[in-house]
Structure formats: C-alpha cells, structure tokens
Amino acid sequence: MSIQILQYEFLGPIPLNEWGPPMEKLVYLIMSREKDRFNIVYVGDCEKTEDKSYFLQHTHFKCWTDQSGSDQSLYLAILPLFDSSKDRRKSILDRIITRYKPACNSADIKEEKPAYVVRKTEEPEDSQKVTCACCGSEMNPERILEKSTIYRCNSCGISDTRINS
C-alpha cells in the first residue's frame, strides 16, 4: 500500500505500533486516521535508527497523540531516500510542511512574505490629478507600491494602476 503526498510516493500508512527497525535515510509522516481519511500530524526525517522505541521517545509524541486522540490512531508512512543527502530530505520536509501545515510541526512553519513592498507616502499637493475613464470623476490614490500606484474612483469604485514617474 502507498500514499501520494505532493509528487512523492510514501510506503504505508501502517499503524505506528506495528513499525519495527531498522530505518535509514528517509522522510516519514505521522498521520491520524479518521474513518477512511488520513491527516498528516507531523513530518520528520531520519538518518538512521535501530531503536524500537524511536517514535515513542520522540519529543513530539505527546502532540501526535493529542492530535489523533490516542496512540492507537497513529499511522506511519515512509519515503525511503537511501542515496539522499540531509539537504535533500530537508527540502522535501519543507515542501510538505509548507503545503500541509501539520499541527505538530507548527514551530517549523515559515510565514510567507509577499514579493512586493507597500510603501506609505504622502502625495504631494501639486501631484497630477487622475480622472476616471468610466465616469470622469477624480480618482484618489489607494495604494502606492514600489513602482506603481493604484487609484480608486470616488464615484463608481473602479480602480486603475499607473506607473510612478
């Protein structure tokens, strides 16, 4: 059995309590099951382990059980990456965390910042008046961006973008 997350084919999911070592160079998903649906609770990676209690001693185990309701509802899916580097596994982790935002990875979720900068500046009193193409009324600057200004008509509400000169 397998499950596809993004473009990756994970083996499993299997009940977490049925897992047994060894584990080497892989990305894993801890999932909770609700009827026929699996929800990603945590995403992690493993360099190598022979420890049977690897997951039970994990620092996020309590979060996993809180999210799933019990340890009996926890499932494991793995993506073996035998020839991968730590950076490659980290890249996959980051992509999955960004897309699915697992509850127990909340400390790893990065806030995305917009690719543009909004600057608030005062309009000079002698600035050029912009007339609405629709109704002919005066348009006021609504947002001044780095290279353009967005104007909105007071009468009809239409907006227009002009390149700053």
Rank of each mutant, 00 (worst) to 15 (best):
S155I: 11
M1C: 07
C156S: 04
C153G: 02
C104H: 05
N17Q: 05
D51K: 06
Y54E: 00
R33E: 02
C132A: 01
D51M: 08
T98W: 15
Q7W: 08
S32G: 04
S159K: 11
A77M: 04
E18H: 14
S127C: 07
L79R: 01
K90R: 14
E9Q: 11
L26Q: 04
K110F: 14
I158L: 10
V130H: 06
K101H: 08
H60C: 03
T98N: 15
C104M: 07
K129P: 14
E24G: 04
K129M: 11
A133N: 15
V117K: 11
K86M: 14
Y116H: 15
S106P: 09
I40T: 01
Q7V: 09
D45G: 05
G136F: 07
L56A: 08
T49K: 01
S155K: 13
L6K: 02
Y116A: 08
R143H: 14
E123A: 12
H60K: 11
I97M: 08
I109E: 08
K101Q: 13
P114K: 04
P141G: 07
K129E: 13
L16D: 02
S159C: 15
R89I: 03
T161Y: 03
Q128V: 12
R143D: 13
M31I: 02
P141W: 08
S155T: 13
D87P: 07
N140Q: 15
S165M: 14
E138A: 08
I109C: 04
I150P: 06
E50T: 15
P102H: 02
V118R: 13
